[in-house]
């Protein structure tokens, strides 16, 4: 069975934000609007983290795409009172929107601030709802959501594989953010397959897992910048 993982090469990423946009469109996220953005309620499943380092006179700014790192030991799953967030066999931490009671305990427990909450009913101005991706369910107000590693795409590929009576193969499926990154900074694939591209990259000396010290065992792996 595959264990899905992702590598993000910070040496390649130019901070263009298209991963945010692609995810927004693919996963039926809605804009929260001007007022709610001001109230700090804008939500994205993946966003750019701005890291400032260096000295006052010689500052270094780095942009880093951050998303749910799909912990193999997820603190968010441990605290959910109703099994509304769970770790799947293939290592994806999912959300059950129809069961979530909206207590936001998982948000409070996630060390990566990866989860977002529907403070209001999502709004689809005008006829925008017509472009909703039919593979991804729409979320009601009051529930928590986050990156799903585009599992609808994985399901699709798995069905195809089952139809052809074989196992799903690395490279058969990719996520919306990886697919549309102009710098090809994001790779997605099977971490259990030692020959997959992600596995190779995960073994790079540049590879590191965010906040590994917390024991969360993230499956999103960053490749540090050279130089």
């Amino acid at each position: 069975m595959a264990r899905w993982g992702m590598t993000i090469d910070l040496d390649r990423c130019t901070g263009c934000g298209n991963c945010m946009a692609a995810c927004h469109q693919e996963n039926n996220l809605t804009a929260v609007g001007r007022e709610q953005t001001r109230e700090s309620r804008a939500f994205h499943w993946i966003r750019l983290l701005r890291e400032v380092s260096g000295t006052a006179t010689h500052a270094e700014v780095r942009y880093k795409p951050v998303l749910c790192v799909q912990c193999d030991n997820p603190p968010c799953v441990r605290v959910c009172p109703v099994h509304a967030t769970y770790l799947s066999d293939e290592g994806i931490v999912g959300q059950v929107y129809s069961r979530c009671i909206g207590c936001r305990y998982c948000m409070a427990a996630c060390p990566y601030n990866a989860k977002v909450f529907n403070w209001f009913e999502p709004e689809w101005p005008g006829e925008l709802r017509k472009k909703a991706n039919p593979d991804v369910s729409l979320r009601p107000k009051g529930v928590v959501e986050k990156c799903t590693f585009c599992h609808h795409r994985i399901n699709h590929a798995r069905e195809q594989a089952r139809f052809e009576d074989r196992e799903i193969r690395d490279g058969e499926v990719t996520t919306a953010c990886a697919e549309s990154c102009p710098a090809r900074a994001i790779e997605f694939g099977d971490l259990d397959d030692p020959h997959s591209r992600v596995s190779e990259l995960a073994r790079s000396p540049r590879a590191y897992r965010p906040h590994e010290d917390l024991g969360t065992r993230p499956k999103v792996i960053y490749l540090a910048e050279k130089e």
Binding site: N18, A21, A22, H24, Q25, S180, P182, A183
Partner: peptide, 11 residues
């Protein structure tokens, strides 16, 4: 663009 887009195109 070889598969890449910008956020505007994506919208």
């Amino acid at each position: 663009n070889r598969g890449g887009l910008c956020p505007v195109g994506q919208a």
